[in-house]
Amino acid sequence: MLEALKKTYRCVCTIEERFISFTLCAITVLIFVSAIGRFVGRPINWAVDISLLLFAWGAFLGADVGIRKNRVINVDFLTSRLPLKTQKTLAVAWSVIIILFLAVLIAYGIPLCISNFKRQFQNITLSYSFVTASLPVSAFLMIISTGIRLHLQITDFPSTLRGGGRDVA
């Protein structure tokens, strides 16, 4: 059961990373082509909207990957002087607060998507909710990543410190 779950999660992670790579390449191509298009008198006005849509998803999913790969930075010159036990308590508390905050973003993000579905993009007939949805969806994945990190902080705290860094998943 747990193995199957882990396998599924790894699969989700792979898809996530591939998708982010895709958004980055697509944005680059779209911006490039639309600039040339405008220069030769054939502007592609939807290119910007699509780029921004892809960017919202790429950015927040990328943030999740950053959390998973232990890349978020924090200031530790004060905390590193505290006893290891206090450090651990603080780190655990922060992870719990982060998870709660992300949960709030989901809880209020989904209704926002639904209640303001009528809001449109500038140039294309597409609901802006598809942009807004990027946050709650990514926040859900971030909760999983932070949760795994939290587990690691409880079971093997030193490995989560800067320098002892390793991917949390």
């Binding site: 405008r38 008198g41 054939r42 502007p43 006005n45 910007v48 909207d49 993009f121 500038q122 140039n123 007939t125």
Partner: peptide
């Protein structure tokens, strides 16, 4: 021109190539 359809379609109808 601003991007909303009422603007860009109008500007296109008047003969120009709308750029947002």
């Amino acid at each position: 021109t601003p991007g909303a359809p009422a603007w860009s379609r109008s500007v296109a109808a008047l003969g120009a190539t709308p750029v947002t």
